[in-house]
């Protein structure tokens, strides 16, 4: 019976819908597919989606490394609170994040009030997209790296020091190579999350075609115009990107598990 339930849910909810999506797109034929999926506006949307996601995942990976290091290595008052706060983006609805980020970064907002006069437009801009994507992807970057830092053999750092390495040499030659696979995995997970994100971005991006329109937003607007074919083809392109990333993430995680042994 467990097999029946698993098979039913996976088939009805995951495999069948995605298969239908691909088949629908395929039924257009190669030329029809390219015509629908490769319009200038769609190409621009892929570019914005991919560019903002890569940028956000990079920022998340770097900031996440700092936060993970602090949580794993340094004991200070409030460490547990900080550790708990890291999970907020996982629990907070993305629509709320989008709403509040746009409110913060508009000219009258708490942060926009300071930033807009400096020429930094956080709301209704490319920067805004990157900001909310960093918000939604940060926990992934932190939670993959943190346990790996915790499990590092600290004797190796002492060994490096006693062999004459400076603090910087120890970090870059001994510590970083040990956690780099985890940082890359965290980056890939953050990228996967950022690439498909919709709820938070619609609030803050302004959704201007060719400028701040991401692929999921374009899918929805095509759908609202009942342009099903075009929506479907764009969705298939996005799906292909996501599944490629999923395979990459899986491979990375397997490597990480092997290294941990």
């Amino acid at each position: 019976m467990t097999f029946a339930i698993t098979a039913l849910v996976m088939t009805a909810l995951v495999l069948l819908p995605l298969a239908v999506l691909v088949l629908r797109a395929a039924s257009l034929g190669p030329q029809g597919f390219v015509a629908a999926a490769w319009t200038p506006r769609a190409r621009a949307a892929y570019g914005v989606s991919l560019g903002a996601a890569v940028l956000a995942a990079t920022v998340s990976a770097v900031l996440g490394l700092v936060v993970a290091w602090v949580l794993a290595r340094i004991d200070f008052p409030g460490r547990r609170v900080l550790d708990a706060l890291v999970d907020v983006p996982l629990a907070l609805p993305t629509a709320v994040a989008g709403l509040v980020y746009s409110a913060l970064y508009v000219e009258k907002g708490w942060l926009g009030h300071w930033l807009v006069p400096l020429g930094i437009q956080g709301a209704y801009s490319y920067l805004g997209i990157v900001l909310v994507l960093v918000f939604v992807s940060l926990p992934f970057a932190i939670r993959v790296v943190q346990p790996v830092i915790e499990s590092l053999d600290r004797d190796t750092e002492e060994a490096a020091r006693i062999l004459g390495a400076s603090r910087a040499q120890t970090f870059f030659r001994v510590v970083l190579p040990g956690i780099l696979p985890a940082v890359v995995t965290g980056f890939a997970l953050a990228l996967a999350r950022a690439l498909g994100e919709y709820g938070s971005v619609v609030f803050i991006s302004g959704n201007m075609p060719f400028k701040t329109e991401i692929a999921p937003v374009l899918i929805v607007s095509r759908l609202e115009e009942f342009a099903y074919a075009e929506a479907t083809t764009i969705a298939v392109v996005l799906l292909a990107m996501s599944l490629t990333l999923l395979i990459v993430v899986n491979a990375l995680q397997q490597r990480l598990a092997r290294n941990a042994q």
Partner: peptide, 15 residues
């Protein structure tokens, strides 16, 4: 760093 001692760790601590 400056003591010029060799230290062998219990669990080797190899890189």
């Amino acid at each position: 760093r400056q003591r010029e001692v060799g230290f062998v760790f219990q669990h080797y601590a190899l890189f």
